[in-house]
Computed example of a mutant assay.
Amino acid sequence: MSILHTVNKSPFERNSLESCVQFASDGAAVLLFEDGVYAALAGTEAESRVREALGRLEFYVLGPDLKARGLSEDRIIEGIGVVDYAGFVDLAAEHDKVQAWL
């Protein structure tokens, strides 16, 4: 069973990302959106956690939420895919379940 995990909280305010990475099964997908997009930025404290998990999890970030926060795609950690709203819907449809980490 494939699961899409969604994280919408900043890794600098909550431990949602850490919990997600710890409990997500190998091969699962993680979508970072709303303030969760900060976890996708290179050069932050969260980068090492994300890079370690990239070998076993697929990471995506919602492009419009990056732009809404004044962030550009060139600041994203290598290996993270950028999706639009249609891509978000596609990810949800491709997976059996969606697990939100609050």
Rank of each mutant, 00 (worst) to 15 (best):
W101T: 01
A53T: 07
G79Q: 03
V98T: 06
A28H: 01
A39K: 10
D74W: 00
A93R: 13
I80S: 12
S16N: 12
A39Y: 07
A86G: 03
L41Y: 06
G87S: 09
V21S: 11
D35C: 05
V98W: 01
T44Q: 12
L62D: 13
V98M: 00
F59A: 11
N8R: 15
D35G: 05
G79L: 01
K67P: 08
E18Y: 00
L66N: 10
T44E: 11
V37W: 11
G43F: 10
V50Q: 07
H5W: 02
A68W: 02
G87E: 09
S25M: 09
D35W: 06
V21E: 10
G70Q: 07
I76W: 01
G63N: 08
V61T: 15
Q22C: 10
G43L: 11
V7K: 01
D84A: 03
A100R: 05
G27I: 01
A42D: 14
A39R: 10
D35H: 14
E47N: 07
S25A: 13
T44R: 13
E94M: 07
V82R: 12
G55I: 04
R49N: 09
R51E: 14
M1R: 15
C20D: 04
G43C: 11
G81K: 05
F33R: 07
L54V: 09
E45R: 14
I76G: 02
F33D: 03
D90V: 07
E94I: 02
G70P: 09
V83C: 06
A40K: 00
F88R: 15
V82K: 11
K97Q: 12
A39M: 08
L71Y: 04
R75F: 00
Q99E: 04
G55N: 15
I77T: 07
V21A: 09
A28L: 00
F88T: 14
Y85C: 07
G79F: 01
V89D: 04
L102Y: 10
A100G: 06
R69H: 09
S16F: 07
E34P: 01
L17G: 02
R14F: 02
R69F: 06
L17V: 02
L54M: 13
R56Y: 08
V61I: 14
G70F: 04
A39F: 10
P11R: 01
G27K: 00
P64R: 06
Y60V: 02
D96C: 05
G63V: 08
E58F: 09
E47I: 07
H5Q: 04
L102D: 08
S2H: 13
E94K: 12
A53G: 07
E13W: 00
A93H: 09
D74T: 11
E18K: 02
T44L: 09
S19T: 13
L17N: 03
A92V: 10
E94F: 04
T44F: 06
S2Q: 14
E78Q: 03
L102H: 12
S2R: 15
F23K: 14
L91E: 05
N8F: 15
D65N: 14
E34T: 02
S10C: 03
N15T: 13
K97G: 03
K9A: 03
S25W: 04
N15F: 03
S10Y: 03
I77Q: 10
V50S: 06
